[in-house]
Design a protein around this nucleic acid. Structure first.
Lengths: 234, 234
DNA sequence: AGCCGTATGAAACAGTTGTTTGAACCTCGT
DNA sequence: ACGAGGTTCAAACAACTGTTTCATACGGCT
């Protein structure tokens, strides 16, 4: 009855009076993340989520307002976990090559991570291909800072002073794209029979992508410099 | 009543008695492709599709059996168009570098193409991130042949005799990933403000990706060869 | 104890969905 | 003219969805 005026049931467990209250919210968020990642926002039913969480159907409305509120909560939960478990910034003092490599490793762990929220990257993949209103939040709170880290490293490698140069942006897209394949296309790779063999670890993949990208950036810079003195390629 | 036994209403307009019959089927397939690409298989409603096509609600059942049949038909239609409009095989006699570049150009035109079915790549992106039963068909009829073309070019560039080598596979994934970003992440890039500037054409992007990949492959081969005689990198 | 605000529970509501139905409608060949 | 086969139509059906309702249980505070 009190919730006619929406008693701020939105986001984090700000007070957690009973351990049980936080328990219900948390189980709901985690179950929701899994189901949303598997089925997508619309395909996921609140009934299935509540059953998986072992809570009553009305709980999602009581704690999160509506289905979308729950979705946003699990999205935030997932982003926080990704930032905490797999930060993209290398330790201070790392050189540009090391920072790029560190970024790729972190991103690949996020993509393929079997850590706490294994559904994190699947959820993100869906949000990108099929954006909801929450995409702006995701970009601002997670993607933009990470992209800044990457483009700083790439700009340094290229000898560019600005991270906004077109060359830098394109190279960054390339790096991210190489990582993304292993999340966005995994079912395809499996059917294709080209998925990484079981002996290949996430770190191996990350190292290959870092090597590939470093070779590309350095190779292109060399050719670009050569082009200044010599003829055009192709 | 006759359709109790399913009078083969499945695939192509094999007979097109009346121009109108093919008309209904075709308009349905095209409208469905658009709506499916926009909203996804489940979110798309047959009511919306039929309204967009200007046909009766029952037509989808009559002509395609059910919603899934219509989805499959629009998927096939889309794949055929992609193969016809943007073949990935270069003309015979093209060298490996040229074949890689040709592949990237074709793939990027498929990704960003504003051609007949502009919804083709969006539909594919959804099918990859959120696979349906049709994914196997898509892989067999479209992706596997294209991947073969790419890995042949890459293997030649690397001096590998087998296209199944792990190095070749990883490099191919990298090339594809670089192209994919511009389809799977376009809304993100827009929000990020790093989307290709309006002066950048699809061909420009493709050239950059080809240059990037060629530099990477050649650079890694050089280092790989150097590693045989010298020390390990990193 | 006795109240009160919070949390949970079972059931129902209202709307939308894919699909089906049976009649009407053409377009033929005879 | 006329019936037949294929096609379209408006309407209805049955299932499922997110959301709401109201009653009940719990826990701390006076």
């Amino acid at each position: 009855m009190v919730r006619v005026a929406k008693p701020i049931p939105t986001l984090s467990p700000r007070s957690e009076r009973t351990p049980d209250e936080a328990g219900t919210r948390l189980r709901l968020v985690e179950a929701a993340g899994e189901v949303f990642a598997d089925r997508g926002f619309r395909d996921a039913t609140v009934r299935e989520i509540c059953a998986a969480a072992g809570v009553n159907l009305a709980s999602v409305n009581y704690h999160f307002g509506d289905k979308q509120g729950l979705y946003l909560a699990s999205l935030r939960y997932s982003m926080a976990a990704a930032r905490d478990l797999h930060p993209v910034e290398a330790p201070a003092g790392t050189d540009a090559r090391g920072r790029l490599r560190h970024f790729v490793h972190a991103l690949m762990r996020r993509m393929l991570g079997e850590g706490r929220p294994a559904w994190h990257a699947r959820l993100m993949a869906r949000e990108m291909v099929d954006p909801t209103d929450a995409l702006g939040t995701v970009v601002d709170e997670m993607i933009r800072p990470a992209f800044g880290t990457l483009s700083k490293a790439v700009a340094d490698l290229m000898g560019e002073r600005s991270t906004r140069s077109e060359r830098v942006k394109l190279a960054c897209h390339g790096v991210i794209g190489q990582c993304m394949v292993y999340r966005h296309c995994m079912p395809v790779l499996r059917l294709l029979g080209t998925q990484p063999s079981s002996g290949t670890t996430t770190a191996d993949l990350a190292d290959h992508i870092a090597d590939f990208s470093l070779a590309a950036i350095e190779g292109m810079s060399r050719r670009g410099a050569a082009a200044l003195h010599g003829g055009r390629r192709r």
